[in-house]
Amino acid sequence: MPETTTNHSAPETTPENSTSPSDQPVRGAEEEVAPVSEPTERSQNPAVLFVCVKNGGKSQMAAGLMRQDLAAAGLGGAVVVSSAGTQPGSKVNALAAEVLAEVGADIAGEAPTQLTPEAMREAGHVVILGAEAEVDALEGVKIERWELDEPSARGIEGRERMELVRDDIHLRVRELRERLLG
């Protein structure tokens, strides 16, 4: 008969223990009761968090385009959509809002938001737009990076640049929507 050992003491805090407080930011004791995986169990709908550095352009565009595409397909709310920045600015890029309005997406009333581990866990799926933003991996959170075309590297600036960025993001958002909703 195999030998069984029961340990009634508190679990050790080790990197192998994915729900260990040691791999989470320091928070108040009352917040330590939820395991890392729980936020993905709260909602029946998939969720995505779009991230860039300032949360004033690319990530806001992606979130706005995802919401607009879902609404146009009669799927408003089928995916929980949010955005954040690693070093958020003070406002949404006016040109980004303008070129999105041309395709029916309204981000003019949005405001940049700070990226937090809690927001990442709640979404469960994080999309980093561009190469600049650095995001640490979190247990139970899927992270993907979209290496976007950067028209300014080819000398394309202003409205034309922003339209090209919008169109690149829009194609990727449509593909992501299909993956999330099957």
Score class of each variant (00 low, 15 high):
residue 129 L to D: 09
residue 152 S to Y: 03
residue 156 I to K: 01
residue 153 A to N: 11
residue 125 H to Q: 10
residue 137 A to V: 14
residue 154 R to N: 10
residue 149 D to Y: 11
residue 150 E to A: 15
residue 140 G to V: 02
residue 136 D to V: 12
residue 133 A to W: 00
residue 113 T to V: 14
residue 130 G to K: 08
residue 121 R to H: 14
residue 120 M to T: 09
residue 131 A to P: 12
residue 138 L to P: 04
residue 128 I to W: 02
residue 139 E to D: 12
residue 130 G to Q: 10
residue 122 E to N: 08
residue 124 G to Q: 05
residue 155 G to R: 00
residue 132 E to D: 15
residue 114 Q to N: 13
residue 150 E to G: 12
residue 132 E to G: 15
residue 123 A to D: 12
residue 151 P to R: 04
residue 138 L to Q: 11
residue 108 A to W: 01
residue 122 E to R: 08
residue 145 R to K: 12
residue 138 L to H: 08
residue 145 R to P: 04
residue 125 H to A: 05
residue 128 I to T: 11
residue 120 M to Q: 12
residue 144 E to S: 05
residue 127 V to M: 11
residue 150 E to R: 14
residue 148 L to K: 05
residue 118 E to Y: 08
residue 125 H to G: 02
residue 121 R to K: 12
residue 119 A to K: 07
residue 129 L to S: 11
residue 123 A to M: 12
residue 154 R to D: 09
residue 122 E to S: 06
residue 126 V to M: 05
residue 111 A to D: 06
residue 119 A to W: 00
residue 149 D to C: 11
residue 147 E to R: 12
residue 151 P to V: 06
residue 137 A to N: 14
residue 137 A to Q: 15
residue 139 E to F: 05
residue 127 V to H: 08
residue 122 E to Y: 04
residue 156 I to F: 00
residue 135 V to G: 07
residue 137 A to T: 14
residue 151 P to Y: 00
residue 154 R to F: 03
residue 156 I to E: 00
residue 151 P to K: 03
residue 142 K to Y: 09
residue 145 R to Y: 03
residue 153 A to Y: 00
residue 113 T to W: 03
residue 136 D to S: 15
residue 147 E to Y: 05
residue 128 I to S: 02
residue 138 L to S: 05
residue 141 V to F: 03
residue 147 E to Q: 14
residue 130 G to N: 09
residue 155 G to A: 01
residue 154 R to A: 12
residue 121 R to M: 08
residue 150 E to L: 13
residue 144 E to T: 08
residue 142 K to C: 08
residue 141 V to D: 01
residue 119 A to S: 13
residue 138 L to I: 13
residue 111 A to G: 10
residue 145 R to I: 06
residue 108 A to D: 02
residue 125 H to T: 13
residue 153 A to H: 05
residue 127 V to Q: 10
residue 134 E to Y: 06
residue 150 E to S: 13
residue 135 V to A: 08
residue 110 E to G: 09
residue 132 E to P: 12
residue 125 H to E: 06
residue 136 D to L: 13
residue 130 G to A: 09
residue 121 R to S: 06
residue 148 L to W: 09
residue 143 I to R: 09
residue 133 A to I: 11
residue 114 Q to T: 14
residue 145 R to E: 07
residue 140 G to N: 03
residue 155 G to I: 00
residue 114 Q to M: 15
residue 117 P to C: 07
residue 152 S to Q: 14
residue 153 A to L: 11
residue 125 H to K: 10
residue 155 G to M: 02
residue 146 W to L: 07
residue 146 W to Q: 04
residue 126 V to Q: 01
residue 109 G to H: 02
residue 124 G to I: 01
residue 152 S to F: 04
residue 124 G to C: 08
